[in-house]
Design a binder for these strands. Structure first.
Length: 334
DNA sequence: AAAGCGTGGGC
DNA sequence: TGCCCAAGCTT
């Protein structure tokens, strides 16, 4: 992992850049290491310091985050960078309390930064640690209700020696050996004290309360290309689903879509294929309508973005799926 | 305090 | 193939 420094360096007092640890930890919230890696490298190459990031344009940061999901993280990333510069002299706070005051930094991330970047004896409790503790102590209370007990167990184990190494090690243990499906108990360094290992309950822990089924919503997206090659796009409002991201104008997304109008009058063509996408709490079937806009078109929403300025990679994935289908249409009809 | 909030990979 | 899961935070 490119944000990590070796235990050997850490032992000699060489700690990682707090900016890098903060960046990686925010990206890693509910996101796999494999997905984060390239984003981390692009962000730190483009904005090498927190001051560079604080000076960035909102749209540039949102565009660079596109595809990683949970876009409130990107909005808070910018807020946080600016808070560090304006309220903390450009240095990240080195205490749990100070870190918790930053936007997008909750109990886990604050403890991760404090322990990994500053070697403070704070306790990280992420999904890995929850699983390891539930098994180590054979706790059958379902999550999220078990969280306080799991946190207390984890805190009791946190050492004062090399807390940063320990935090990473216990998460690595959960990510590799004490894995959700096929835990490798035979090679686990904690196999002797582990209650679930002894009782044979490891694979069924931690218990979780069942999830609600996802409803299916539908909607329409309007993808218009002007004769000069510009695309009609809009910036979504700064809160809610895909907040702050670039997207295509369209209807609401709902189980029953209310009446709505296209952004301008034209001979809109409905594509034969829909864009299918699943969000955290619903499935979406997006119907795509395409049109060529004459020069001088005045849309009721959004604005035309030049073909040179528009990077499809700035779009969140659902909008990118819609674009790919529309582009097939425009190319195929040429 | 329960719900909202993305995405891709693995099985 | 659909479901589960991933180094959670905010309101």
């Amino acid at each position: 992992m490119p944000w990590r420094t070796s235990p050997a360096d850490r032992a000699r007092g060489i700690l990682p850049d707090p900016y890098h640890i903060w960046m990686s930890e925010v990206m890693l919230q509910q996101t796999t290491v494999a997905a984060v890696r390239d984003y981390f490298l692009r962000f730190t190459a483009r904005w090498p310091t927190v001051a560079d990031l604080a000076a960035a344009e909102d749209g540039d940061v949102m565009g660079e985050w596109a595809g990683l999901g949970y876009y409130a993280r990107a909005r808070n990333l910018l807020k946080c960078a600016r808070a560090v510069v304006t309220d903390h002299g450009g240095q990240f706070p080195d205490t749990l309390e100070g870190l918790l005051g930053l936007p997008g930094v909750g109990p886990y991330t604050a403890a991760a930064i404090a322990s990994i970047a500053f070697d403070r004896a704070e306790t990280v409790v992420d999904g890995n640690v929850e699983r390891v503790m539930a098994r180590l102590y054979d706790i059958h209370t379902p999550l999220p209700g078990a969280k306080p007990e799991l946190t207390a167990r984890a805190a009791r184990l946190t050492p004062t020696q090399r807390p940063g190494d320990y935090a990473q090690a216990v998460m690595d243990l959960g990510a590799t050996i004490c894995s959700p499906r096929n835990p490798a108990c035979g090679i686990c360094p904690w196999q002797t004290p582990c209650a679930a290992r002894r009782l044979g309950t490891a694979t069924e822990l931690p218990k979780k309360t069942p999830k609600k089924p996802k409803p299916t919503r539908t909607g329409i997206a309007y993808i218009a290309r002007r004769s000069d090659g510009d695309w009609l796009l809009e910036r979504r409002p700064d809160r809610g689903l895909l907040g702050g991201m670039l997207g295509w104008p369209g209807s609401e997304w709902a189980e029953q879509v209310p009446p709505h109008a296209a952004p301008f009058d034209a001979d809109w063509v409905t594509l034969p294929a829909q864009a299918l996408h699943t969000f955290t709490h619903f499935h979406l079937r997006l119907t795509i309508q395409v049109a060529v806009a004459p020069q001088g078109t005045n849309p009721t929403t959004g604005s035309f973005l030049s073909g040179d300025m528009f990077r499809p990679s700035d779009l969140p994935t659902v909008m990118r799926k819609a674009f790919d289908l529309a582009q097939d249409h425009f190319v195929g009809s040429r």
